[in-house]
Design a protein around this nucleic acid. Structure first.
Lengths: 372, 372
DNA sequence: CTGAAAGCGCTTACAG
DNA sequence: CTGAAAGCGCTTACAG
């Protein structure tokens, strides 16, 4: 399969060989059929309130539309109105179910506005997020949701991997309005994120309510914005409960199974290991589970595990994971709404306030009486 | 969030309130800047071989493009050429990782052709697959990949759920070329599928090679095209190995965890249970694992399990599942290629011949010596 | 070798 | 109440 690479600025593909579409019924044909002008047909199709039309004429036009199977040509309409009725969404990778929920929320909202959503992945396309963004921005969409940026790290692994390490990073200018989704980039004032601190607080509070006092945290990578907020939420919840957080109880991982495995191994090797652990991310948690199994630690008998994002994976693991469900679909929906409604010049700095839910499964229980 | 429903034929949304895009630099501005006609700019941008241009002029134009940051307007180009350089892909649902791989394959191929891929999900949009297809077909794309149709059943659960039960089902006519992906619909002669029989054969042969003789099959729903082919592959492989397949050893499920759970329970309750089982689908297999655990049957000690589709889920389960990896990315890529290159009038009935691989993990082993 | 001009299919002031 | 016409930004025969 031939795969021409990114072209130099100002040059296009040598020749494209796609045959032109046959092209369907045009508004002119409908107008002729109904014996009216194209203006009337257009106004009728677009529900123009200013159009007053005799019932008889209206039904003649409607009949012509029906007979010919007329579908307005979206391209022509777009060109005339300078509006695409389409939005773009750039994600790292379609394999991550976290993005699946975000996509669905954005898609439903777009369809509800009679628009269309164009989702592209950097992994799939071989383009950088910004290259992809630029390609879409050149007249294909009215706005761009960025759930991946060139500043992202480890983006393939988790929707939460964000920028932050790269000081002063800014986005190259884009010719359409954009909005960062579930991540922030220094110097960029248009983003929407989830309340990760609250999610962390819910998770830790659940462990506290069960009676745990030695509660560890397997954190995400320091480069990820969400990881920082979840860690902060963990500390706050611990402090509120009057519990200590000795340094050894917080271990950094990288939102991967291998990272979770390593971090859990460290925790279990401590002289006085924790009885519960809040893992920043479900993928890491899967690794943590395997580490526990490998060392013969039973979950939740020896150690309880809780994490963030209630993906179906969580229910499939053994034991099935207790999680905090985040409103990812709502996030996607709200993001598209903001993108469509707010002027491009407005700063948008929103923490999405959707419902979060503690989903209790089999990985959390009270600590064993008497401890170990 | 307002969500106007599907509009009656011939009527559009009452009023749309999106402001028009400001609109970027046009080809006319570039031409003026460089002191040439728009024709020259266009030909240069499109690498027209027929254009002979003095080097001096060329660099003047290139400089103007650079200075002004000119990006050709994709809409205008599309209208003029009656070609969108875009393809659509309809799937049931973004949550299913089987589709994630198909999408990535199609996306990479589209980007390689300087095209764009527009993926829509029925679940996310609230539209039926054909409603969505029709929306995209009206001038937004040059062709449509259908990995979901109105004839699909249980489509949310698995990419393989296909039509077949609904006799005589045909697709409503679409105004652009289309191709069914990983499914067939009676009466429709444009599809691409995987070699499910071969996958089944590989799975069963692995069990035979390990020394199993009582090998069961947890089949998919009879409505799914792929389920039928996998079951056929199972029977063929058994026959080839000279093994019997008493009726009780084949149990139908429905590509869901619950279905897999029930089917496995039936098999384990047999007077003479199998020592190995080929499960038609990874989601069912997850349920089958849970059933075994619930009944105290050890895997692979008491019974080996193998399935199709090497999704990351398979590695996360306990025990990690042995699978047959299917070339889903290749399927998506090939599908887009066929759609783009073949005339709309050609029948396409292809069994994609990509590499399949046996991925051995922890759920298969030789039968215990002496049986049970 | 380069340019003037038509036209893709719509929408929308503007005129009648 | 309805229509004629301009124009969105491109591409491409055609002419010079």
């Amino acid at each position: 399969m031939a795969r021409p690479r990114q072209r130099p600025a100002g040059e296009g593909p040598a020749v494209t060989k796609l045959p032109p579409r046959p092209g369907g019924v045009t508004i002119a044909e409908v107008a002729r059929h109904a014996g009216v002008s194209t203006a009337v047909v257009s106004r009728l199709v677009n529900n123009d309130q200013a159009l007053s039309i005799r019932d008889e004429t209206r039904s003649r036009v409607l009949a012509a539309i029906e007979d010919l199977g007329y579908q307005p040509n979206a391209t022509a309409r777009s060109l005339r109105r300078s509006r695409m009725d389409a939005f773009g969404l750039i994600i790292p990778n379609f394999g991550n179910p976290v993005y699946a929920e975000i996509i669905q929320g954005a898609e439903a909202t777009a369809v509800g506005m009679n628009c269309v959503l164009l989702t592209g992945s950097s992994a799939g396309s071989g383009l950088t997020p910004m290259q992809y963004a630029r390609q879409l921005a050149s007249g294909r969409v009215d706005g761009l949701l960025l759930a991946d940026t060139d500043a992202d790290t480890d983006a393939d692994t988790e929707a939460d991997a964000g920028a932050g390490a790269v000081a002063g990073t800014a986005l190259e200018p884009l010719s359409v309005p954009f909005l960062l989704v579930n991540r922030r980039v220094p110097g960029v004032s248009r983003y929407i994120v989830l309340d990760d601190e609250r999610a962390a607080d819910m998770a830790v509070s659940h462990l506290v309510d069960l009676g745990h006092t030695r509660i560890a945290h397997i954190a995400g990578p320091s480069s990820a914005d969400t990881a920082g907020r979840r860690a902060a939420g963990y500390r706050t919840a611990m402090r509120t409960a009057g519990l200590a957080t000795p340094p050894g109880l917080v271990v950094s991982a990288d939102y991967t199974p291998a990272g979770g495995f390593g971090a859990m191994s460290k925790l279990l090797a401590l002289r006085d290991p924790p009885t519960a652990v809040f893992v920043a991310n479900v993928t890491s948690a899967a690794g943590a589970l395997h580490s526990a199994a490998a060392r013969g630690a039973r979950i939740p008998g020896d150690i309880s595990v809780i994490t963030v994002h209630d993906l179906s994976l969580a229910a499939f693991l053994s034991p099935a994971l207790t999680t905090v469900r985040m409103p990812l679909t709502g996030l996607g929906a709200r993001a598209l709404e903001l993108l469509a409604e707010r002027p491009a010049s407005d700063p948008i700095q929103e923490t999405f306030d959707g419902p979060m839910e503690l989903v209790i499964r089999d990985s959390t229980a009270p600590p064993r009486a008497g401890g170990r």
